[in-house]
Design a binder for these strands. Structure first.
Lengths: 341, 341
DNA sequence: TGCATTTGCTAAATGGTTTTAGCAAAGGAC
DNA sequence: GTCCTTTGCTAAAACCATTTAGCAAATGCA
């Protein structure tokens, strides 16, 4: 007993006009010559019947579905990275679009399948997102709709939205310098191969480049650089524990918040106080940063803005090649001593 | 110069058959009488041309879009809750479906808009998800497709997938008892109104009910019950700090992992060791639990399985009313003393 | 008045698939 | 040889909105 869906023809009939007229009026065509009276009648009829256009029919005719695909390697691995989706969702919603979310696990075969599934559904655009910034796999298939990379790069698709890691790196160092932490400074998480851009992540190389640049500008040097391939909590803990056996740092520059959390644990065990004995600055503004005690001062990844920008780029095309860098801003909590100004 | 999309008519022409035949063969109709030769020719032609069906056209004709809507209050508020989406995504993908993700912020107006947007797009089913288990707003609109609640409840829509909180609560207490923690036991996060089911969350009431039931069964009582409206890290810290001023608990039963993390911080400051001085059990298996030192033993919310089940229910209909309870299993890390068996 | 233009609207085609109804040929029963 | 059934396939309608081309009436201009 499902009531049949209301179609445009129903609206037209009730308004005493043709479907043509109803369509033109409801889609708000600019140059039409239909009377004000006709407009009123159609709108009234549509409202009365609760008319909702059939998107499939419209898509068939116009090749536009008002939906865009968000294809990512992982869906919100970090709570914070889910900001990418959230930002995209908000921007899509604002433009009366809808997001098709697909997950690839980073696997080429699934990526291909995901792109095809999206294309089959007539999406108006594709966002290829990476939860952790890095070079992204792009299958060898022509994507016939506008496409942007989000938080990742690929040489074959030079349209991307990225955090401004270089400036972010500089900001972190500046924060330390401004807080008067200028010696016994240790870098946590650096990885030599990484820095040479060999592996993983071009954006992370930029983060390091920014750090180096600002260190030089401030005339500072690191007393030590502890490298680690993974950047998990346990790595931070192990590195700092080992460090504390020989040296006592004054400041720790951690390449992400999880490393910093590990550092907190090691410092706590050694009964060192933050920021009195050791100050910390970190990157990402992971959910963790606000949980720690004292709160962790960190350079935030602007995930939400990035997601939003990606959708806006797609929708407001045409797309120009190039990178859009979104600023990373410092979130000051308690892991740096208050500036004496 | 975009090559035009390959249509079914193209395939039929190449195969030397009618579109009717091609359609029947490619959709795998069971009772057709087309020859084996015809099957071979159509499949060959489709493969050669790289034919992909136009989902919009198919949706128009069949009212089925092979896509389902995942409408949630928040997208992955907790990193862990994103398991809901991930599970749904995996199950959808396995059935060659796609997920339309929409966020409502818990607002009635946005919820209504989201449902309409989904229905406009001919989704085959709707999942109404809540990131934090609770009573969910349901707008007064007829949803013409199969619908399930995920991690939330609503009296008007009695089809839901929920964690088995009652059994989960019992498991937590059993874990403590088995580890020999039977006195100076403190409950952390209980809220009297909550327990009476007045506010927020029916599922959480069940968690408490399970705890009470198993405590009684084991002949145990709580030495103290610390209540708090919010369950953030800082609440756990404050409560335990205050507790330590007068008492020293032997075991802490925390109602979620964030509270437990706060407890870790307070215990650490007081130089109490875990699990030697104080043992902890908690709920959720938030990402946090694995970061802590020692790791936090916690009763996991089976988010991924729940998301998967929700999609499977929709796809394998017909839907019977009722709750599907998904078991919560214990994840043992280091916050309980090893069992002496 | 006669012709051209503008105004206000509609008929019909279109998009790509599924599905209903049915056709022609072959085979079977008698 | 006739009639009925089965086999293998197709023509055409249907789904619903958009859009092109164009029609009839009214208006403008001389």
């Amino acid at each position: 007993m499902q009531k049949k869906r209301v179609t445009l023809a129903d609206v037209a009939r009730l308004a005493g006009l043709s479907p043509t007229a109803a369509s033109m009026i409801l889609t708000g065509r600019p140059d039409t010559r239909l009377s004000a009276e006709a407009h009123a009648k159609v709108h009234a009829a549509a409202a009365e019947l609760g008319y909702r256009p059939n998107v499939a029919a419209r898509a068939l005719r116009t090749d536009q579905s008002r939906s865009i695909a968000f294809i990512s390697d992982y869906v919100a691995t970090t709570r914070f990275a889910s900001g990418l989706i959230r930002g995209a969702l908000a921007a899509a919603d604002a433009a009366k679009n809808v997001l098709l979310v697909l997950e690839t696990g980073g696997e080429p075969a699934r990526t291909l399948r995901a792109i095809e599934a999206a294309l089959d559904r007539q999406v108006d655009g594709v966002i290829l997102a990476a939860m952790r910034a890095r070079e992204v796999f792009l299958p060898d298939i022509a994507i016939s709709v506008p496409t942007v990379m989000l938080n990742g790069t690929n040489a074959r698709l030079p349209i991307s939205v990225l955090p401004d890691e270089f400036e972010g790196g500089r900001t972190a160092v500046r924060l330390l310098a401004e807080a008067g932490i200028t010696d016994r400074l240790v870098l946590l998480g650096h990885n030599p191969e990484e820095e040479r851009g060999q592996f993983r992540s071009e954006p992370i190389s930029r983060r390091l480049a920014g750090i180096r640049a600002e260190m030089a500008a401030q005339g500072l040097t690191f007393a030590d650089e502890l490298s680690s391939w993974d950047w998990e909590v346990s790595n931070g803990y192990d590195l700092v524990r080992r460090l504390l056996r020989k040296d006592r740092p004054r400041g720790l520059l951690c390449l992400n918040d999880r490393l910093a959390f590990g550092a907190y644990q090691a410092l706590g065990e050694a009964h060192l106080s933050i920021p009195g004995d050791v100050a910390l600055v970190s990157f990402d503004n992971d959910e963790l940063a606000s949980y720690l005690r004292p709160g962790l001062t960190t350079i935030a990844l602007p995930h939400q803005k990035m997601g939003q920008l990606a959708v806006e780029l797609l929708l407001n095309g045409p797309l120009a090649a190039g990178e859009r860098l979104v600023p990373m801003s410092a979130v000051s909590r308690g892991s740096l001593p208050a500036t004496t100004s």
